[in-house]
């Protein structure tokens, strides 16, 4: 609890630094005397932007995130295991090896189906 409070105040200090820099800049930055509407255009190499940028992306991005979540969950299960590995002995080791190997079957399947090419 104590440590979490420290972390919280550390994060608050970090936020203050960010906000402070923005505030400092607000005080000293230049302001345009004449405002040009062109200045607020979205940059697209000097051309008028063709469409709005919010567009559709390819599904492979989704798979990346899905893989990340799955492997992350795997790792999350391994963290408590890692801390008790010494005391629990070979049984815990075998359990985790099975756990990881089953997951790596999924990885092998992905490799076989060339789902890891990303293009």
């Amino acid at each position: 609890m104590h440590a979490w409070l420290s972390a919280l105040s550390f994060l608050l200090v970090s936020t203050l630094i960010g906000v402070g820099i923005l505030a400092a800049s607000r005080a000293i930055r230049v302001r345009a005397k004449v405002d040009s509407p062109l200045k607020q255009n979205t940059y697209e190499c000097g051309e008028e932007p063709a469409q709005v940028a919010w567009m559709q992306f390819h599904a492979r991005y989704y798979v990346v995130a899905l893989f990340f979540v799955l492997f992350d969950i795997e790792a999350v299960f391994l963290f408590p295991w890692a801390t008790v590995l010494r005391e629990l002995g070979a049984g815990a080791f075998a359990a985790a090896v099975t756990f990881v190997l089953v997951l790596m079957l999924g990885w092998l399947y992905a490799l076989r189906k060339e789902a890891l090419q990303w293009q």
Binding site: L70, F99, A110
Partner: peptide, 29 residues
């Protein structure tokens, strides 16, 4: 960790199959 690997070790293993199924599903998508 103790709970997971002693009391609920079966559930722990089942989770890996769940994750495996999810990976395969992701590839199909």
């Amino acid at each position: 960790g103790r709970e997971l690997l002693q009391t609920h070790v079966l559930a722990f293993e089942v989770v890996s199959f769940l994750l495996l199924a999810a990976i395969i599903g992701a590839i199909v998508i």
